[in-house]
Amino acid sequence: MVSLDFLKPGDAGKITSINGRQNFLSRISGIGFSLNEKIEMLQNNKRGPVIVSLRGSEVALGRKEASAVIVELGRE
């Protein structure tokens, strides 16, 4: 299990947990994140925000925010 910011473009997995305070969790939920949801990394440069794809949408996440999302690697 790794945090989202370690995924390379093309890596996919399932969200196993999200850490953070209530307002962060509720904002990130509203934009499509939830436990056990499939997620795929689209763009990850060593610095700056990442772009992921989930529920058919593309979402940009700040690097710190991405590190709060824990993912289990592997495609079904």
Binding site: N23, R27, I28, P49, S57, V59, K64, E65
Partner: peptide, 11 residues
Amino acid sequence: DEDYTGLIMEL
């Protein structure tokens, strides 16, 4: 800004 949540943005 306790509500500060960094960038969470739909593209």
